[in-house]
């Protein structure tokens, strides 16, 4: 192809204008703080600088209290029940003090009540997440509001994030979650058509109910917890979570690793606490 000077200038001029226009679109998007999943801001959406949780386990009394939170999450997110611990997929679960805080629990004289107390564990949505640092495809990434997201369509299933997460928050689909077990029972008992199911060979985890935040709802576990799980902005000094953290003794899991977990636990429960 050959072109004369005039044609060249025309093309160059048009490209420049388009280039500047493109730039405006990009900066425009940045200003509104839209996430990749949005085309326009939803007025109902909950907003924060850094979302976080306070889990007050003294308010979780019976097994049903825990199970309600787990069921609420796993039900709406189509988390498969594979039925064996090897291939297990879970976003939120119950565990003992010793397993929740393994680096602080080497104590033979530990308070019996504490030893038997159960905790609710889910993704810590760390401020400095190790999983995001190691992911080779940016399939796991951090949103501006602190949510550590997982893009199941980009994940290559290398499981580097599972090796890196110090909290065991991530599950891999060793089996097809849309499949059935040996006796023909589907792994997803009752599918929620509002939320995608996953495919085989990708990693998944709690995504802080980003889909609920977007329409102004609290995360499902917090809603089902009867006040045991508080949800709010950790960067807002007037938020409910900050008020609890500033007035009560709280602990986080493995803070010594520097990932800065966004879940604070209140143990409470005894008169001496």
């Amino acid at each position: 192809m050959s072109m004369n000077r005039r044609q060249f200038l025309k093309i160059a001029g048009v490209s420049t204008v388009l280039g500047i226009g493109g730039g405006t679109v990009v900066t425009g998007l940045r200003r509104t703080g839209l996430e990749a999943s949005q085309v326009s801001p939803d007025p109902r959406a909950l907003k924060a600088k850094r979302w976080g949780f306070v889990v007050d386990v003294s308010k979780l009394k019976t097994d049903e209290d825990y199970q309600k939170c787990v069921d609420a999450c796993h039900g709406i997110h189509n988390v498969p029940d594979i039925g064996n611990p090897k291939d297990e997929v879970k976003w939120i679960w119950k565990d003992t003090y010793e397993r929740t805080f393994p680096t602080t629990s080497e104590d033979e004289h530990m308070n019996k009540e504490l030893k038997e107390k159960k905790f609710l564990l889910f993704c810590n949505h760390c401020a400095q997440p190790a999983c995001v640092r190691v992911c080779p495809t940016k399939a796991t990434f951090k949103r501006q509001d602190g949510v550590v997201m997982q893009d199941m369509h980009r994940c290559i299933g290398c499981r580097f994030c599972m090796a890196a997460c110090p909290f065991g928050a991530r599950s891999f689909n060793y089996r097809d979650p849309r499949g059935v077990d040996a006796s023909g029972r589907p792994f997803i008992r009752k599918e929620n058509p509002q939320f995608p199911t996953r495919m085989i060979g990708v990693v998944e985890k709690c995504t802080m109910c980003y889909e609920r935040l977007a329409i102004g709802q609290q995360p499902a576990c917090a809603e089902a917890s009867n006040g045991a799980i508080l949800f709010g902005d950790l960067d807002d000094p007037n938020s409910e979570v900050r008020k609890v953290i500033s007035s009560t003794f709280t602990i986080r899991r493995k803070p010594e690793l520097g990932t800065q977990p966004s879940i604070y636990y209140v143990i409470g429960g005894t008169e001496h606490a």
Partner: peptide
């Protein structure tokens, strides 16, 4: 590496979405 991947057909995602903070990207 290939047989270990959950989604081997997506292997080119490592090149399409280069991520310099990931050691695995550099290993590639």
């Amino acid at each position: 590496i290939f047989v270990d991947m959950g989604q081997p057909t997506r292997i080119m995602n490592v090149v399409l979405n280069p991520t310099p903070n990931s050691v695995m990207f550099w290993d590639f």
